[in-house]
Design a binder for these strands. Structure first.
Lengths: 221, 221
DNA sequence: AAACATTTGTCCGTATGTATA
DNA sequence: ATATACATACGGACAAATGTT
């Protein structure tokens, strides 16, 4: 198990939080590979903390579906099946569409400005083929709509699904690679629907925007 | 008789698991009231385990939104706002409708029989005004459809939302009290839609079934 | 079958941090 | 501001469970 040595500890966070976010990163970016066995003693030494915060982080990672613990036996990074990415997009689409619907009812002029600014940046990144930045801005766009929708349950679920999707991108495609100019146009249309408080149309467009990545996947799987 | 080996029987529950399910029960049924302060030393004595499994259970309860920990300060049972129950039904409806849609594609004759059997029991319980049993059978009906839909993410989210809804029922209404004969008819219609593999209709009927409780709530809030 | 090695599960002592007098 | 009380955070030792030789 290769443990990168460039690990820097954010002094203010608790040992548990540091451990959790570090392990999350390593699992999502593939440093810790699917199916890899995790040893809490080894990790505690590598991260300079005791087994307690490691174990605590393990518990949360298991809830998030990033690791699997076999009580009394072993702990492993969860494996991924290419086909299962569809199982992530199905609920994500339903929830994002719902969020768009709810956001249409709450939308304010400042929100519209904010969304347009994010999407302008997204369009630029796509044009300049800065794909990592584009991915981050795409996520920020959707997170903003979730925030406007003002429903913690929806936000939490979507955030969890988004994390897994990002892991799939890193593991199977090495880097984010399917942001497109068409997505920026989708976003623009969504913003317009929200601006005119057309909930149904916003939901419809949101679904359409989320189906896009699946089309890319079809000829990559 | 061949003993199934694939099913890992939790012959003995760990202290953490016992603690977790006990605290869950107490919080959901109101034994531990909203806003109540939780003391790990006190609980460890009451449950006959050390503070470690209590602490581990606390972590999971926090993720589930049943308690709130203020690191270094205190731990409390989360409070409830009557109005927020709507925030639970919004994503639950979207996800259950999606599940119905997916289930329509996977449905098998055995599933139909199973669903009819559960709904028959539900109808009986409603008629006999055994409301707790009716609630459990209603949940089982929906869980079965989730199982047929075969998507772990959807199941997990719905289960979490359902738990919170049950807590609202206990805290604000003391007992389950809004199961109705109309719900049993909804279920029957859903089963028929699934049987004819009409995904769109199944989703529409599922939404309708989930809107019912909200109508009851309107004149109870 | 039984002893061993490995890993997870639990306990409890201590350190750290926060609120209150 | 300082001291005190109290709750959480962490560490390290021991117990229990599992798989293997």
């Amino acid at each position: 198990m290769p443990i990168p040595t460039d690990y820097t500890s954010p002094a203010r966070l608790s040992a548990k939080e540091r451990t959790l976010s570090q392990l999350q990163k390593w699992i999502i970016d593939g440093t810790l590979q699917p199916g890899e066995k995790l040893n809490d003693s080894e990790l505690s030494e590598a991260l300079g903390v005791s087994r307690t915060p490691i174990r605590e982080a393990f518990q949360l990672l298991e809830v998030q579906g990033l690791i699997e613990t076999f009580p009394g036996k072993e702990t492993r990074v969860t494996t991924l099946e290419k086909e299962d990415i569809i199982k992530l997009y199905a609920p994500l689409t339903a929830l994002q569409a719902l969020a768009a619907e709810l956001a249409a009812a709450n939308i304010q002029p400042e929100h519209i400005k904010q969304l347009r600014a994010i999407n302008a940046g997204f369009g630029e990144s796509v044009k300049k083929e800065q794909l990592y930045e584009a991915m981050e801005l795409d996520e920020e766009f959707h997170e903003t709509i979730l925030h406007i929708a003002n429903n913690q349950h929806i936000s939490t679920f979507c955030s969890s699904l988004q994390m897994h999707i990002r892991r799939y991108k890193y593991i199977f495609f090495k880097r984010p690679n399917w942001e497109s100019k068409a997505a920026a146009e989708d976003h623009e249309a969504i913003i317009n629907a929200l601006e005119s408080r057309n909930a149904e149309e916003a939901a419809r467009l949101m679904k359409h925007n989320l189906v896009r990545p699946l089309e890319h996947l079809d000829h990559m799987l």
